[in-house]
Nucleic acid binder design. Structure first.
Length: 764
DNA sequence: TCTGGGTAAATTTTT
DNA sequence: TTTACCCAGA
C-alpha cells in the first residue's frame, strides 16, 4: 500500500485530531502486527542489594569495586548475573556501554575468564575502541593486556577477518590468508572494471548495487524498462572468480566466508560472546554468533529495540523478538535514563509502544518540547542565527548545540547561512579517504605492494588524476589485456611493470615506482623496524613540491605513515609483512588512516547532522529541522508498515539526543518535493500538555519581503560572486554570466550552466 | 543519432 | 515533482 493511500485511509477515520495517531489507528484495523512490547513479567528484576558481591570484588580488585558501587541496581544485576544467556534491553541513555565494559571486567578479574576467551563484538570502530580504552583504564598499576589478548575485541568485520586468517579451511574457498579487503567503493570500481574488460552488457549500471541485491534476494534480473535479461548473472560469476584469483573480499564476504568456514569446522569457541547494539544485527551476523557458540559458551548482548533504525541495512527487529520468545534467554532491562530532562523524555516515550515504566526519567522535569513553525528553511536558519547567539551568551558552548535533519540535502542551506552570518558550525559526516587524493593514492600504493594481484589498486596508482601518469579508461584496459595475453607473470604488478616499461618508456619514474612496489614485501621484511616508506617510495617526486597542496599532502602522508608505524609496532607478532597487511585491512575497514586512536573530531561549532549520524551522541540543545509530514516519516512509493515504524523510532532517537532543550520545526512552505503541509503526524502521539507550540512564520505581508521568489530575471540580477540557491544543487556562487547563460559553481556538484532567463536560482 | 513513451525512484550509512 | 534510463521507432 502506498503512503498516500495510507494517509487518505487514515484521514477518513473519525478520530479526534489531538489523539490521532495514524500508526496505532492503522494497527487497530490492519492485521497482523507483531508487537514490540516485551511483556513486563518477562524481565528478571534486580535484587535489593548487591553489596555482598561488591565486598568480594573489593578484596580482589578495589578499583573495580568502587566503579561498581556507582552503578544502579539494574546495572549491577546485569554485571553480576551468572546466567549463561543474557539479553539486556537497555533504554536510551541508560549507560549500556558502562554495563558492557564492567561486565567484561568483572568476568575477567573476578570470574577469571581470560580476555582472549571473550569475543566482544561491536558495529562501529568507535564503539570497539571505546570499550577497549575503558578496559585498559583499569590497569593503572599492572601490565595491560597486549593486543593479542584483545584480538577478538572489535567490530564484527575486523573479528571476522581475524578468524578467517586463523582458520585452516580458507584455501578450499580459493583464498589465501593474505587476502585484501575492498570497501564499498572499491567493490563498485571492481565490478565496473569487470563490465568494461569483459565487454558485458549491463543495464542500469549506476543502480548496480540495488540490482545485485534484488537478484540475490529475489532472483530478479529484469529491472525498470528492460525487456530482456542482460549480463548481470555473468558479471556475478566473473566477479566471484576474479575475487578468488585476486584474493579480494568485500565487507559482506568477510562475514559469509567465516560463516562458511565455521560451519565446516569450528576452530574457536570463546567462553563468552558479548555483543553491543544487538538490535542492529543482521541475519549473517546472528549466524556468526551461533557459529561461534556451543552448549557451554556464554552469551551477553546489550541492545535497544527502540533505537533500531537500520532495517534498510539488514537488521530486523524480529531478531530481538525471537530471542525474547526463546525461554533459555534471561531478559533484563536498564530503564533509567540519565540524559534527558523529565518532560522531554516523557514526550519522547509517547512515541514508543511500551509500558509506562519502561523508560524512566531520573532528572528534573525541565522544559517542554517546543514545536515551532517557520515559513521555510531560509527563515529557520536566520532564526537560529539569532537564537544561537543568545544561547551562547547564556553560557551554553556551541559544541552543545546540534541541528538535526532527516536528509543530508536539508543541511547545505543552513551551513551556508551560518557561515555567512559567522556562526561557527560543522557538518558531521564521515569524510571519505577517496576524497583526500594524496591519502587515497598512498592507500593504493601500499595495497599494490602488499597485494600484488590487486588490479584495481594498481590501476588507481597509475591513473590517479593528481599523481598518476596514465589515463584511466577502456583504452588502457584493453591495451593492457592485449599485452598480457598468452604471457606468464608472477603477479599482476609484475605484468603491469613490464607493460609500463614496454609501452610507456617516458614515464621512467613510474616504472621505477613499480619496481619498488614489487620489492616492498622484501623491504618490509628485511629492514625490520628501520623502515622509511616515504623515502623508499621516493614519494617526494610524485607529490611535486610545486603543487599548491604539497605541504598539506606531505603532512597528511607522513602522518598516515606514522600511524602505520605505530600500529605495526604495537601489534607486531613476528611477521612484519603480515602486520602491514593487517594494518592496511584496518585502514580499509575504518576508511581512514587513524587506526590507532580513531579520528579526533575537534568540533568547535554547532553540529549539523542527520538523525542517523546523531545516534549515540548527546547535546544540551537539539533542534530538529523541517519535520513536516512527508519528511518524517519520509514518504516513499513502496512504504511498508515497517518503514513507518522505523521512521517513528528515528524521531524517538532524535528527541532523545537532547539533554535540556529540544525544538522541532516544521515549514509552512517546504522546499522538499515530498513534504506535506503541517508538522509530522507522529507528533500527534504526544499529549499537548507536554508540548509548547510556537509560530514564528511571518505573516503574508512580510513573507514577500523575506522569502525570495523566482522573479522575472533581469540581466542585472546575476552578478559574478552572487550567492544563490538551486532547488537541487543547493547553494552556489555565480562564476560568470551574460545575456544567454549563467554559470554557477555548486561545490561538490561542480559547475552548472543555465539559461539566464530561466535559471531556477534564487539569491541568498 | 534523436525523439517520445514508459518506468522507477527519490532517504538514512557502517563495515 | 523531477530525474535517469531503457527501448522502440524514426
Amino acid at each position: 500500500m502506498s503512503l498516500k493511500h495510507l494517509h487518505r485511509k487514515l484521514r477518513n477515520t473519525d478520530l479526534p485530531s489531538e489523539e490521532f495517531d495514524p500508526i496505532s489507528a492503522f494497527e487497530s484495523f490492519e492485521s497482523p502486527v507483531i508487537s514490540n512490547i516485551i511483556p513486563p513479567d518477562r524481565y528478571t528484576e534486580p535484587k535489593e542489594d548487591y553489596s555482598d558481591i561488591i565486598t568480594k570484588v573489593e578484596a580482589k580488585k578495589p578499583q573495580l569495586a568502587s566503579a561498581l558501587k556507582k552503578l544502579n541496581l539494574y546495572q549491577q544485576q546485569a554485571v553480576f548475573s551468572e546466567d549463561q544467556k543474557l539479553l539486556l534491553s537497555a533504554m536510551v541513555g541508560s549507560g549500556k556501554t558502562t554495563v558492557l565494559t564492567h561486565k567484561v571486567l568483572y568476568l575477567h578479574f573476578i570470574k577469571g575468564i581470560p580476555l582472549s576467551q571473550m569475543a566482544v563484538l561491536t558495529f562501529t570502530n568507535k564503539a570497539a575502541r571505546e570499550i577497549k580504552e575503558r578496559i585498559l583504564s583499569f590497569y593503572e598499576n599492572s601490565t595491560p593486556p597486549n593486543s593479542d589478548e584483545l584480538r577478538y575485541f572489535g567490530t564484527f568485520h575486523s573479528v571476522a577477518r581475524q578468524l578467517i586468517k586463523e582458520h585452516p579451511k580458507l584455501q578450499e574457498l580459493g583464498f589465501t590468508p593474505d587476502f585484501s579487503i575492498m570497501d564499498q567503493e572499491a567493490k563498485e570500481d571492481f565490478l565496473q572494471r569487470l563490465i568494461v574488460s569483459h565487454e558485458l552488457d549491463v543495464k542500469y549500471r549506476n543502480k548496480l548495487d540495488k540490482r545485485l541485491k534484488l537478484y540475490r534476494n529475489e532472483k530478479q534480473i529484469i529491472y525498470g524498462n528492460m525487456k530482456n535479461p542482460d549480463d548481470l548473472v555473468q558479471l556475478l560469476n566473473i566477479s566471484r572468480k576474479e575475487k578468488q584469483a585476486n584474493n579480494l573480499m568485500d565487507f559482506d564476504d568477510l562475514i559469509s566466508v567465516i560463516n562458511w568456514q565455521l560451519k565446516l569446522k569450528k576452530t574457536f569457541i570463546p567462553e563468552w560472546i558479548v555483543v553491543d547494539e544487538f538490535q542492529d544485527c543482521n541475519q549473517e551476523q546472528i549466524e556468526l554468533i551461533q557459529n561461534l557458540s556451543d552448549d557451554r559458551s556464554h552469551f551477553f548482548a546489550v541492545g535497544d529495540p527502540n533505537q533500531s533504525i537500520y532495517a534498510w541495512r539488514g537488521s530486523t527487529n524480529v531478531i530481538f523478538q525471537n530471542y525474547i520468545e526463546d525461554q533459555s534467554f534471561v531478559i533484563m532491562r536498564l530503564p533509567l535514563n540519565y540524559r534527558t530532562s523529565g518532560q522531554l523524555l516523557n514526550a519522547a516515550s509517547c512515541l514508543l509502544q511500551q509500558d509506562n515504566d519502561a523508560l524512566q526519567a531520573t532528572r528534573d522535569q525541565g522544559k517542554k518540547l517546543i514545536i515551532r513553525n517557520h515559513f521555510d528553511d531560509h527563515q529557520e536558519a536566520y532564526y537560529y542565527v539569532q537564537k544561537f547567539k543568545e544561547v551562547h551568551q547564556h553560557g551554553t558552548p556551541r559544541t552543545e548545540i546540534a541541528v538535526l535533519f532527516r536528509t543530508r540535502q536539508q543541511i547545505a542551506i543552513f551551513e551556508s547561512i551560518f557561515q555567512l552570518e559567522g556562526i561557527p558550525c560543522e557538518v558531521v559526516s564521515k569524510t571519505k579517504l577517496r576524497e583526500q587524493a594524496a591519502l587515497f593514492w598512498l592507500q593504493n600504493i601500499l595495497l599494490s605492494g602488499l597485494h600484488p594481484n590487486d588490479m584495481d589498486s594498481i590501476l588507481r596508482v597509475f591513473t590517479s588524476t593528481d599523481f598518476g601518469c596514465l589515463k584511466a579508461g577502456k583504452r588502457l584496459l584493453s591495451t593492457f589485456s592485449k599485452f598480457i595475453e598468452g604471457k606468464e607473470f608472477a603477479s599482476k604488478l609484475e605484468a603491469f611493470s613490464c607493460f609500463l616499461s614496454e609501452k610507456y618508456k617516458k614515464h621512467a619514474e613510474y616504472i621505477d615506482l613499480c619496481q619498488r612496489l614489487m620489492g616492498l614485501a622484501d623491504y618490509l621484511r628485511s629492514r625490520k623496524r628501520d623502515v622509511n616508506l616515504y623515502q623508499y617510495l621516493s614519494l617526494d617526486f610524485f607529490l611535486k613540491p610545486t603543487s599548491i597542496n604539497y605541504k598539506d599532502d606531505v603532512a597528511d602522508i607522513k602522518n598516515a605513515l606514522n600511524e602505520l608505524d605505530h600500529y605495526t609496532l604495537k601489534n607486531y607478532f613476528g611477521d612484519w609483512l603480515e602486520i602491514y597487511r593487517a594494518a592496511m585491512s584496518q585502514v580499509s575497514l575504518e576508511g581512514h588512516f587513524q587506526i590507532n586512536s580513531g579520528i579526533q573530531t575537534e568540533t568547535k561549532g554547532v553540529s549539523l547532522l542527520t538523525i542517523h549520524a546523531a545516534k549515540g551522541l548527546e547535546f544540551d540543545h537539539v533542534y530538529l529541522s523541517g519535520a513536516n509530514s512527508g519528511i518524517i516519516p519520509l514518504e516513499r512509493k513502496k512504504a511498508g508498515y515497517d518503514h513507518l515504524k522505523e521512521e517513528k523510532r528515528l524521531l524517538f532517537v532524535a528527541l532523545t539526543r537532547a539533554k535540556n532543550h529540544m525544538e522541532i520545526s516544521w515549514h509552512t512552505k517546504s522546499s522538499a518535493w515530498n513534504a506535506q503541509d503541517g508538522p509530522s503526524y507522529f507528533l500527534n502521539s504526544i499529549p499537548s500538555a507536554l508540548l509548547e507550540k510556537v509560530d514564528t512564520a511571518p505573516t503574508k505581508d512580510s513573507e514577500l519581503e523575506t522569502t525570495p521568489k523566482v522573479e522575472l530575471n533581469d540581466d542585472s540580477k546575476w552578478k559574478v560572486g552572487t550567492k544563490v540557491k538551486h532547488p537541487k544543487y543547493g547553494t552556489g556562487e555565480i562564476k560568470s554570466c551574460n545575456e544567454q547563460d549563467v554559470v554557477c559553481d555548486f561545490g561538490k556538484f561542480g559547475e552548472k550552466s543555465f539559461a539566464s532567463a530561466w535559471a531556477p536560482l534564487v539569491k541568498i
